[in-house]
Structures are given as structure tokens and as C-alpha cells.
Amino acid sequence: MKPEETVRALWERTQQRDWDGVGALLAEDAVVEWPVSGERIVGRDNYVRLNAEYPEGWTIRVLRLVADGEEVVSEVEVPHEESGLHRVASFWTVRDGRIVRGREYWSVPGSDEAPRWRAAYVEPM
């Protein structure tokens, strides 16, 4: 499986709640970091359990994947029934068909107020 196929499969299997399938895509010692919340998930089992136990009500839509060798970037939209819309930019390293490292930036669109000084140069999305 090409690295971008591995990452696409990760999101598809997560959407399907196929936790064994998600685990099969991760190296046993995979590390995934969430800098926005200051958390590091160490190990395949912790990554799978964290996602399996996340409160239900969410779906996943892959907006794009960009790959360069073993490095893959994904942009994903995750609407949740209770907590609203989330966007995530993820940077993955895939070796031998398994994710060995990830860094994900989860955010809520519109949660950062735009500074007034930029108003002359931008338009609302």
C-alpha cells in the first residue's frame, strides 16, 4: 500500500469504527502528537482506544491528501452532533505500510477572532 493509501485507509476505517483495521495500519510504537492540546499518544493500542472511546456523534470527510514519499498530509473535516465542526491538518510518516508518526492540529473554524488590523486585507470565509 502506498503511504497516501495507508492514510486514506486510516480515515476510512476510523469512520467505519473498524478499530482492528485502524490498528493494522499503525506501527506498534507509533507516536501521534496533538500540539494544540499539548498531548502525545504513545503506542498503537493507546491511539486505537482513544479513538474508539471518543464520544459518538461524529463523521469524517477527507478534504485532501498530499504525499511526498513516506510523508503524507491530510486535511479532514469532522462534524460532531454536540461539539460542532472540527478541522484537522495531519502530518503522517508512513514506513512499510504502517503509520509510525503523526502530528495533528485540531481546530474549530472561526474559534480564533480575526484581529481588526487585517480587515482591510481579508474577507470572511
Rank of each mutant, 00 (worst) to 15 (best):
D20Q: 11
S37D: 15
G38D: 10
L63T: 12
Y105C: 12
N51W: 10
E12V: 04
E56V: 07
L63N: 15
R118P: 06
R61L: 04
P55W: 08
V88I: 08
E81T: 05
Y47M: 10
D68Q: 12
L25V: 05
M1C: 09
D18P: 01
R49W: 01
A24Y: 03
Q15N: 13
V22S: 14
R101G: 07
V73F: 08
E4T: 04
V42N: 15
G38C: 03
R95C: 02
V22Q: 13
Y105H: 15
L85D: 04
E71H: 13
A120W: 12
N51L: 15
M125E: 03
L65D: 06
R103K: 11
H86C: 08
R95F: 01
S90P: 05
R95P: 01
A24C: 00
E75F: 03
L63S: 14
V36Y: 06
I99W: 08
Y47Q: 15
D68M: 05
D112T: 05
G38V: 01
E5Y: 01
G69S: 01
W34C: 01
E39M: 15
A119Y: 05
D112H: 10
E123G: 02
Y54N: 03
E39P: 04
R8S: 01
R98M: 04
S74H: 00
G84H: 06
S107M: 05
I41L: 13
R118K: 14
E75D: 10
R103A: 00
R103G: 00
W11I: 00
K2C: 00
L10S: 02
E4R: 13
S90H: 03
A120V: 09
L85R: 11
V108K: 15
Q16F: 02
S111A: 14
V94E: 05
R44F: 03
L65N: 07
T93S: 10
E53L: 09
P55I: 02
E33D: 13
N51E: 10
W19E: 06
R8H: 11
Q15L: 12
L85C: 05
W117P: 00
S74Y: 01
V36D: 07
H80W: 00
L26H: 06
S107W: 07
A24M: 02
I99H: 07
R49I: 08
P3D: 00
V108A: 09
R8K: 14
E56Q: 12
V122Q: 12
L25P: 09
V88Y: 05
G57T: 06
V42P: 03
L10I: 04
D45W: 00
V32S: 04
V100L: 07
L10K: 07
S83Q: 13
Q16L: 11
G43R: 05
Y54K: 07
P124R: 10
Y121E: 14
V32D: 03
G110H: 05
L85A: 08
G84W: 07
V31Q: 13
W19T: 08
R95W: 01
E75C: 08
E53Y: 06
T6E: 11
P79Q: 08
R98F: 04
D45V: 02
V88R: 11
G38W: 00
A120N: 13
V22A: 05
S107V: 09
R8G: 04
R103S: 09
E39G: 02
W34Y: 15
V42Q: 12
E82M: 03
R64G: 14
R64W: 09
E39K: 09
D112E: 15
T59R: 12
R17K: 15
S83M: 14
I60Q: 13
D112V: 10
L50C: 07
W11M: 02
P79K: 02
E4N: 05
Q15C: 08
